[in-house]
Design a binder for these strands. Structure first.
Length: 287
DNA sequence: CTCAGCTCCTGCGGGC
DNA sequence: TGCCCGCAGGAGCTGA
């Protein structure tokens, strides 16, 4: 379920159970996801304290004492959920009250205090790895990732420089994690719609003013999705922590043949396939 | 160097 | 009820 807003929502949901707590035991129920785990991963996690739980792009990063960082990617279908009901009046203390294991529960973090964090991923496109905290910047999975879209270094001037000379469709350029971090198929469709840019437009043929608007709309789209995810998670966490991806009100994604939601536009949402993936857009207001 | 296409894997919904 | 098909939020890799 994961683009940047969902990963950020997961991170915030995991904080109370994980940050500052010791992993009493890491239970690996298989030896790989997309790639094999480090052969000694369970031992390196067991007994480690999580000093901080961060996010970079679509990756969750748990900095451990021992100067190592756990890198987690949720792939297409990965979830991380907390179980164990918080004890009343005791922050960080959980009652042992856990549901039975489910299919595709691949990794379980048994946390100090009684909480459990379960990684479930049917399609197994997710990943976990460990690296030295001070070398994470050069980790193969993280080294080439572009700026965070909600950070200061992502702006119209930067984007213009990246897109200069690129004849590839803007849709593909925004999905390229080297250009900007954390965007996926849904939020690229939504941001392009809000910015009135056609997904097939050549990346280098977007003027400065429209790039300003695109940057603004990317930020707004993500910020609003994080706010919506956060509220959904708060409501749901007592149950099992899952967040309904499609609770967000998308304007074009998955809405083929429905009316365009842009104020004053009478167009209809269309679906095309670009580099093998669906793009939803309105041909009337997106140019 | 860039870029499109293929690939990993499971589940779900629709049509017959 | 069951079977087959297409499609799904990611992204690394290959080969042109």
């Amino acid at each position: 379920m994961p683009e940047l807003p969902e990963v950020e929502t997961v991170r915030r949901g995991l904080l109370p159970a994980m940050e500052g707590a010791v992993i009493e035991r890491a239970e690996l129920r298989r030896a790989d996801l997309r790639w094999p785990f480090p052969s000694d991963m369970a031992a390196r996690l067991t007994g480690a304290r999580v000093l901080a739980l961060r996010r970079r792009s679509k990756y969750l990063l748990a900095d451990l004492d021992r100067s190592e960082t756990l890198i987690v990617h949720l792939g297409m279908s990965g979830r991380m959920t907390v179980s164990g009901v918080p004890a009343p009046h005791v922050p960080g203390k959980f009652h042992f009250d856990h549901p039975a294991l489910e299919k595709h529960d691949h990794v379980i973090f048994h946390m100090e205090g009684g909480a459990r964090v379960t990684f479930n991923d049917p399609r197994r496109f997710g990943a976990m790895d460990l690296c030295a905290t001070d070398a994470q910047g050069s980790h193969k999975l993280l080294a080439l990732i572009g700026p965070e879209p909600l950070g200061n270094s992502f702006n119209a001037a930067y984007l213009a420089a990246q897109l200069a000379g690129k004849r590839t469709p803007i849709k593909a350029a925004l999905l390229d994690q080297r250009i900007v971090a954390g965007l996926g198929n849904i939020y690229v469709c939504e941001a392009l719609h809000r910015a009135s840019i056609h997904p097939a437009r050549a990346a280098h043929r977007i003027g400065a003013a429209r790039l300003e608007r695109l940057v603004r709309e990317i930020r707004a789209t993500l910020t609003e999705a994080i706010a919506a995810g956060g509220s959904s998670l708060r409501d749901y966490r007592q149950a099992d922590g899952a967040l309904g991806y499609f609770q967000h009100g998308f304007k074009v994604y998955g809405r083929e043949a429905q009316p365009c939601q842009q104020p004053g536009c009478a167009g209809t949402v269309r679906r095309i396939v670009q580099s093998g993936r669906s793009s939803f857009y309105c041909a009337t207001c997106q140019r």
